[in-house]
Amino acid sequence: MAEVLEDVELRSETLSDQPWVTIVWNDPVNLMNYVSYVFRSYFGHSAQEADRLMLLVHNEGRAVVASGGREDMERHVEAMHDFGLWATLAKEGS
């Protein structure tokens, strides 16, 4: 009995914690050094990680730059729009 209940709790926790992601999309306007600067200054990434994400956006057309709760991701997307980057949020894996 106890084991079954534990299972149920674990599963409900997994559902409620389903992460969301912030995605930055490529655009032909924003400069590479600016995008990298935004990733460093806003997310606190190292120069290396910021450049990696920036190149991912540039080459793949998009990159996941953050993951977590929905409200946090909405805040990040709004901040990216402040910077003029094209960003959206979505459920992870969707």
């Binding site: 655009d27 032909p28 306007v29 924003n30 600016y34 600067y37 402040d82 910077f83 003029g84």
Partner: peptide, 18 residues
Amino acid sequence: LRHLTDLRLVLAARLQIE
């Protein structure tokens, strides 16, 4: 920084840089 970006985004749309 943000304003220069905004201006360029508007100009790019006018120039049809997609």
